[in-house]
Amino acid sequence: MSDAMLNEQVEATKGKMVMNQIPADIVGESPLHHADLETLASRGQDQGGVHLKEKSLQGLLILRAKPDEAQMAEIESVLGVALPTTPLTSVEMAGGKGDVSVRWVSPDEWFIVVPATVAFQLESDFQTSVSGHYSLVNVSSGYTILQLSGDNVVDVLKKSTPIDVHPSVFPVGKVVSSVFAKSGAMMLRRIGDNAFELIIRRSFADYIWLWLQDASMEYGLVIEA
């Protein structure tokens, strides 16, 4: 990207800067790249109470806004789904503009997951279509997503977080931000009866990976590619 392009963008964006941060032909390394989960998946055990899969290299964005009705509609038209406004809920939609899921984080914050290549498009669409005060920040490399499932997934979560994940208070689609073991930031969402999605910060990924291996030792851990 040249300086000229940069300047154009800055002008086009009502005082905010977006840039395509992804190179065309270079494969990125997820926060758990060093663990080589693919090899573990092909060579490790295939029976166990806990299944783990890294959903790596997604497009991750944090939206801050206090939308009024007009802005809400503009955001919905860009995202393809309405922002969830009920605390601790999430929405997701497959197809259309591409898979998109949105998690409520706080009354003025949402965490959005889209395919990696869609992130920049989304940022650009916000710039052109959403009015008023908001902030949309690309954090694709700042986090990674782990999917945990299996008969003992709840046991592992009980070892790791003070959150009550009983289905009566933690139904499918619920999302919370909390602590995970001794790491201070994680987002947990139920995606099935015995399946959860864990969004963790990049720099804590190795610690949480070690923790999960340890916590699931007594149940057996299956790595999925």
């Binding site: 490399s141 073991a181 001794k182 923790w211």
Partner: peptide
């Protein structure tokens, strides 16, 4: 509990740690 040994305290790493 498990807050001992390697897991005593989280260790944060950068992308170039390896």
């Amino acid at each position: 509990g498990r807050d001992c040994g390697e897991l005593f305290e989280p260790k944060r790493y950068t992308a170039m740690h390896q």
